[in-house]
């Protein structure tokens, strides 16, 4: 049997906006994580204060860019958790923007359930993994 001829290489869509590498961002002690209820991505009232402080930091450090990571616990499934983490990062971003941080300074990324902070199988651990995490890099 003859070897199959390769199919023509299709033209992949080329997105235009350049994305900064996530590796360029670092976590700093001044910026605290916020946490979410199971399968939720709305900001909990208690976490609004944390976000206010994070927003104030960004407003007083205009020369820094933000990367917000969204994370999920392992109890959903891979693909849904990627979407859930995205929504969590987006909720945090929207809050910062509502507090006056320029949207153009913020990049978001979802890791879904792939980068848990805690790996035990209990609610104490899962609740730590349902989070938005803030990192920065100089412009």
């Amino acid at each position: 049997m003859a070897a199959p001829t390769p199919a023509p290489t299709p033209a992949a869509p080329r997105p235009t906006p350049a994305r900064p590498s996530p590796k360029e961002f670092v976590a700093i002690a001044d910026l605290k994580d916020i946490y979410f209820d199971f399968d939720k991505y709305d900001i909990r009232p208690g976490d609004a204060k944390t976000l206010d402080a994070n927003a104030a930091w960004f407003k007083s450090h205009a020369d820094y860019l933000a990367l917000i990571e969204g994370h999920a616990d392992e109890r959903g499934t891979n693909e849904y958790n990627l979407a859930l983490g995205e929504r969590r990062a987006k909720s945090a971003m929207n809050y910062l923007v509502s507090q006056g941080v320029q949207a153009s300074r913020i990049t978001i990324i979802s890791y879904g359930e792939e980068r848990p902070q805690c790996t035990e199988k209990n609610e104490g651990c899962w609740s730590k993994n349902r989070r938005a995490h803030f990192l920065v890099k100089p412009r």
Binding site: A12, P15, R19, A83
Partner: peptide
């Protein structure tokens, strides 16, 4: 390797 979608945000499922 061929890139199928690399837009801002998630490209998944």
């Amino acid at each position: 390797l061929q890139t199928l979608a690399a837009f801002a945000g998630i490209n998944s499922a």
